[in-house]
Design a protein around this nucleic acid. Structure first.
Lengths: 133, 133
DNA sequence: GTGGATTTACTCGGATAGAAAGTGTCCGAGTACTGATGG
DNA sequence: CCATCAGTACTCGGACACTTTCTATCCGAGTAAATCCAC
């Protein structure tokens, strides 16, 4: 069980956008270069973030991706869910009574993790680590 | 990102063994029947638990799988690690400075989850929910 | 110069393909219990 | 009665195949800014 590389790229792109000049779109090529991914693939990933309403894309020359208005409220969990989906980590898929005790334990653990991810916004991180990217 | 079905089977098998009569080995067929898996596949999964030292297998007639001595200390995390491996959920795999802030956030979240899983033993669960299986 | 057409630099999204991991099956080998056989 | 041998009921583990997911590429289409060209 691992987070996909796509999640990795999405998180890094968001951090980069948060650290870059706002309002001015950044081209996929530049974003892809920084992370050593093919632009086409990265574009496919970013499309998911667009659909989730975190960023928006500008077509045409000088186009690219740009953060949307309320991006400061976007949390790690939001980004991860946008890429990985919101399904829970564990499905018992076995009917031995209505609520599986195993399921309950694992889900409780998962919620601890999600609580942490929901508490961290990209905006905060970008301020603290402005230098990195 | 999801836990594999194998983890599901492993956890349920452990719970079943914990609820069953100790010391008497339970055949793969019976275990597989309960969970609607093929015995061969389940055996492959249980081999990992054997190598991790949680259970032991008895060959020959009336053979099967049986919990080992110190099984009461086995936690959810132990079982999950035995099946999924111990690698962390997230690898930055991008060199932008020595420690990636994104990595730190995700890893901290993961550790919250692991802490919860490390706190729950199968023995406890078996006592509380003896009826289920 | 001014307006319109062309070029250019981009993103978008579907189709496709390759790679990797997860899931599952098959079969030959080994092991321990059970029962039969022969002395 | 006892030892040995075959039979049976299991597990073990490697090899193989199928399925799904992830990763990545290709290409045609659309879009908007910049440039060019005729008037």
């Amino acid at each position: 069980m691992k987070y996909s590389k796509a999640t990795n790229y999405a998180l890094h792109t968001m951090l980069f956008l948060a650290a870059a000049t706002p309002n001015k779109p950044v081209g996929v090529q530049k974003l892809a270069e920084k992370q050593e991914v093919s632009p086409t693939y990265l574009s496919k990933i970013l499309t998911k973030l667009v659909k989730a309403g975190m960023i928006e894309s500008a077509s045409g020359a000088n186009g690219g991706y740009r953060l949307k208005r309320n991006w400061e409220n976007v949390t790690f969990l939001d980004i991860i869910h946008a890429i990985e989906g919101t399904a829970s980590l564990f499905d018992c898929s076995l009917d031995h009574g209505p609520d599986c005790p195993i399921q309950q334990v694992v889900l409780a653990a998962e919620q601890k993790m999600e609580a942490h991810l929901r508490n961290q916004t990209m905006a905060e991180l970008a301020q603290t680590h402005k230098i990195v990217f």
